[in-house]
Structure formats: structure tokens, C-alpha cells
Amino acid sequence: MTWISKSITVFGGLLLAHACYSAQEHSALQSLRASTAALTSPSPAVATLPIDIAVETVVATLVILLGLVLNTRPLRPIQWRVWAGKVEREGEEGFIDSSGEVSRDYIGNPFRFLETRPGFIDIRKQRKEFADWVKNGGERLGASAGAGAQ
């Protein structure tokens, strides 16, 4: 889909450039005509842009807009249940932004802290559980995770 929207944007840009060039040429021609006309008759020439150049400019702008709008990423859900369902169903994957990183404002379920309760953590129990995990074959897993981190 992206190549369609990108080519639409490029096409709109070409149209706009063409309109600009035409307008510039037209005004150059007008001023030339005015300078030659001034020699023959004293009435000043009215410099108006031809209607086709004006139309081309407007159409080019609209085409560029269309291309840009088509190129945007899908919008985030704004309904609570849809958004919450996305958090549960897709996890981090659903919130990757255009740079390929997990979006900075992604925090998962914002109410998870009510179940994990970081203010009340029992650090001694956590340490003991971790030590048990290491004893029961966690070493191998830990070694591979360490190799991955380095």
C-alpha cells in the first residue's frame, strides 16, 4: 500500500511544480508584453493568472494531501474495550511505531500495578524464589540469556 500512496504524493508534487513553473512563465510573458505594450499604448495590462493554472494548483494540493493521508499508519483505537483488547491480544507487538521500536508510551495494562503492588513488594520472598529458580535448572537458561544480552 505504501508505494501507491507514495507515488500519489510524488505525482501531486510534480503537478504542483508544473503549476508553479507555468505561473512563473506566465508572469514573465505578461511583464514582457506589458513592457512592449507600454511603448504603444499607455493603458497598463491586467496581470491575471489563467484559470487552468489555478485549477492545476488546487488539484495538485488535493492530490498531495490524499497521498499523505493514505500513507499514515492505522490509527490507535479510541474505544476503551477495543484498546484494552489490543493490549491483551497483541501485547507489545501492537504498539510498534514507524521506527520499529515499541512505542514509548506503551505500558501494557495500566492497572497491572494493582496486582503486582510495587509499593508492597516482599523482597526477601522474591530473592528466595529467584534462588530456588536458579537452583532448579535456571542456570542453563540464565547462561543463554546472558549470552544473548552481550
Binding site: P118, I121, F130, W133, A145, A149
Partner: peptide, 12 residues
């Protein structure tokens, strides 16, 4: 906050 992570993730 890392309190809900698995032991492996905490180690990482």
C-alpha cells in the same frame, strides 16, 4: 516496574 517479570527476564 519489574515486579511481574519471570525470573529469567529479571536476570536479563
Amino acid at each position: 516496574p519489574p515486579s511481574q517479570l519471570s525470573p529469567a527476564a529479571a536476570l536479563q
